[in-house]
Design a binder for these strands. Structure first.
Lengths: 226, 226
DNA sequence: TTTATGTATTAACAAATTGTGAACTGACCC
DNA sequence: GGGTCAGTTCACAATTTGTTAATACATAAA
């Protein structure tokens, strides 16, 4: 899975737990940073500016609640999501944890799947619009969200297929795409079109961009290079 | 306690639980409405427009997950907070519940104090943006609070759907909205309308605004640009 | 140089998508 | 009941995009 562009800081003094959570959240597409005690958590939080902080409550140096209080007292961490992950399941801790300003309070043991769901739920609530898939290479900008291509600050209008083809090639500059790969990616498996069709689209792209950024690899396919 | 101006709808088929929760949340300052099955929950939700909906999962008529799905598929309930309160503590239900679009998943039995903490935590997170959602782009002003559009100081009257469509597009200038996205956002998942319907509304907006601010991206969708 | 192979170019055609005017359906309001 | 309006659909026109076929061009091996 590719990056969601979200950074998560996990603080726990048990290396095993740290590792399990890190593995699972990374697999889910998050960027994970770890800390093994309260002070380290605060230190790293200030540096990496995570979007979410997962805190164990019982930790050396500073416990989770203290970490939460310290962070919440700073304006720049008012908005940061905080989730307590703890073995303390008593009512008092639960209430206190949330009243310290945490956004969620989860008790161990917890399955990775459930934790991931809860993390996703937190982001879903806060998220505006995720990831920007814009490609920027030299003077060329390809923005699939806006369906827009710019060359040297000038807008170029591409048709759907042209855009998809260009985006495919530009997504991996230098890599050669076989004609078959192109057909599968841009046209789909069931659609059958002739080989010349690709050529024609390539030509239109070259023409419209006015850039020599697509190279023909004879007998093989095409590649993007800038 | 004085009112927090927040309305909470609770749906559960056990009268005792309903009463306990209602009592506690009311004491905390919330305005509480109750429902004893899924259908009633949906019905009342549409009328009272609660800020938070607490759903039991196992209920007559429609279960909680179904209620959640129905509501989330409607544009006006996209932002409403939903919390599952259930006896189902298995991992699958938990994950499924959250993935349906709920904001929290809590298992019974739960102490009133903890529930209140979690409810408060949900509101705390959401309330942080009491912002003015008015969009101002160039000479165009779109105010969803007043349901009003102005072009160059002149009032324009748009119908509901027209307004929602314009607001959606204008909320992210430049970004292309697929026809599907538009249908989901403006009409909701369960409503099925023809493709021409979007076109017609787009046309009316263009006509009324007298501005060329909506661009057609053939084969893809529409985008706002000013 | 010739030939074989594969690509570029072009114009013409086919297909897909969108724009438009008119008309239909319910709500709602005199 | 007649009128108005929002929302929707329809049929068809207008437009854009996708594809093909035919031909010209380029390159490397024989």
């Amino acid at each position: 899975m590719e990056s969601k562009g979200k950074k998560i800081l996990i603080a726990d003094d048990e290396p095993d737990i740290l590792e399990i959570i890190q593995y699972n959240l990374t697999k889910e597409g998050y960027e994970v940073i770890t800390a093994k005690d309260g002070d380290e958590a605060i230190g790293k939080a200030k540096i990496v500016r995570p979007d979410l902080i997962i805190l164990d409550i019982m930790m050396p140096k500073k416990n989770g609640v203290e970490v939460c209080e310290v962070l919440r007292s700073q304006p720049s961490f008012k908005e940061t999501l905080i989730l307590f992950l703890t073995a303390l399941s008593d009512e008092g801790s639960h209430v206190r944890g949330l009243e310290t300003g945490a956004d969620d309070y989860v008790t161990k043991p917890i399955s990775p799947k459930v934790l991931i769901s809860r993390v996703n739920a937190l982001f879903r609530r806060v998220n505006k619009e995720p990831e920007d898939k814009t490609l920027k290479i030299d003077g060329l900008t390809i923005d699939p969200a806006k369906f827009e291509v710019m060359v040297g600050g000038k807008d170029i209008t591409l048709a759907k297929k042209e855009f998809e083809l260009l985006y495919l090639l530009a997504s991996r500059p230098g890599r050669v795409f076989l004609r078959n790969e192109i057909l599968n990616q841009v046209w789909g498996n069931e659609v059958i079109v002739g080989d010349r069709t690709i050529d024609v689209h390539i030509r239109k792209i070259r023409q419209k961009l006015g850039l020599d950024c697509i190279t023909t690899v004879k007998g093989v396919g095409y590649k993007f290079n800038l």
